[in-house]
């Protein structure tokens, strides 16, 4: 499991570490580095951008200093991958591990990083028709959903049925995901209206419905990515459904608790929703606050706050957050 991301002079993350658990919920004001942090997995692997460090250096970083992003693994690897950018451009990444950076270890780390996905769904992409392909994966904006669900139905019908049952519980007006060919090789999703049996094309259902379907699809995949980031999974979804959204993400992170036998997914989600935050009152260790001061941001686990339980007492987590006493709010 990846236990932390460490940043030096990287955009707004001038000098900070994002600790990661099996599940991490990131809250904080706009521009506090939440998205920057979870998009850094790929940057660390690919050393993008290919230009000099100035392109990604913190505004407050001394001129000429290197920019680094570290990915720190706990067990079983106990390794650190460091990507570095100098004034002359990226110098690739180095790997440190107690037993040395052996070939298999390097391959395993690169493989895990290459499979990290950060989902930021776009309803029009989720609804898009797709050219059928045998091994279709869900894109980070939702492209390919029709192909992925079609494959799930064919290869894992029990998972597809469970997804349909869950969808029907979330959105009782629908009872099944259907497919049709709408052009040469072009698959499209339809949702069946429970009352009338009418098939509604994906491009005619609400954005929130599509966003919910995207999250549910990942939760029921037999082979989800080892690390999955979710940009505002609450977006477009009714507050009363957010508990189900959280449970779908928990299904990924804690598969045994949901009757799944596949390996756990390390989940990192961002939110601005007070309703979403309140769902983590009993697991403060899963919440990390991004605090922005000037043009720098830092991360701090909520559970590390001194006397946090005494401060919260009976208060809603969201109310306490909104007051500002927990940090993670816009500066005024």
């Amino acid at each position: 499991m990846i236990k932390a991301l460490r940043f030096q002079n990287y955009k707004v993350l001038r000098d900070t570490t994002l600790p990661l658990g099996k599940f991490t919920l990131l809250i904080g004001p706009n521009g506090s580095g939440k998205s920057t942090a979870i998009s850094a997995f790929r940057k660390a692997l690919t050393s993008e951008p290919s230009g000099p460090s100035q392109l990604i250096a913190s505004a407050s970083a001394p001129p000429g200093q290197d920019v680094t992003v570290e990915v720190q693994w706990g067990e079983p690897y106990r390794a650190t991958l460091t990507a570095r950018w100098t004034a002359n451009g990226p110098v690739g990444h180095s790997i440190n591990a107690p037993g040395g950076a052996t070939g298999p270890l390097v391959q395993a780390l690169r493989d895990e990083l290459s499979r990290v996905r950060v989902y930021s769904f776009d309803a029009t992409h989720l609804a898009a028709t797709v050219q059928s392909q045998p091994e279709m994966a869900l894109g980070e904006t939702g492209m390919g959903l029709a192909g992925v669900l079609d494959r799930l139905r064919d290869q894992h019908p029990e998972r597809f049925d469970a997804l349909n049952a869950e969808l029907a519980r979330w959105l009782p007006e629908f009872d099944k995901v259907l497919f049709d060919t709408v052009g040469p090789g072009q698959k499209a999703i339809f949702l069946r209206d429970r009352a009338s049996g009418h098939r509604i094309p994906a491009w005619d259902v609400s954005q929130g419905t599509l966003l919910a379907l995207g999250i549910l699809t990942i939760a029921y995949l037999p082979d989800p990515p080892p690390v999955a980031g979710f940009e505002e999974p609450d977006r477009g979804i009714h507050p009363r459904l957010l508990r189900d959204v959280r449970d779908a993400l928990y299904r990924l992170a804690y598969p045994k608790d949901y009757g799944e036998s596949r390996p756990p997914v390390q989940v990192i989600a961002t939110t601005h929703s007070p309703y979403m935050l309140d769902l983590f009152r009993e697991h403060l260790e899963e919440v990390v606050i991004a605090e922005k001061r000037g043009n720098e941001a830092k991360f701090e686990p909520l559970a590390h706050r001194p006397d946090i339980e005494k401060v919260l007492h009976d208060a809603q987590l969201s109310d306490a957050w909104f007051t500002g006493v927990l940090g993670g709010v816009p500066t005024e």
Partner: peptide, 18 residues
Amino acid sequence: DKLSLKRAAYGTDRAGHQ
């Protein structure tokens, strides 16, 4: 405590709605 009661009742302290 509250969390251990949830684990005893549901088998997990992160039980889903169902």
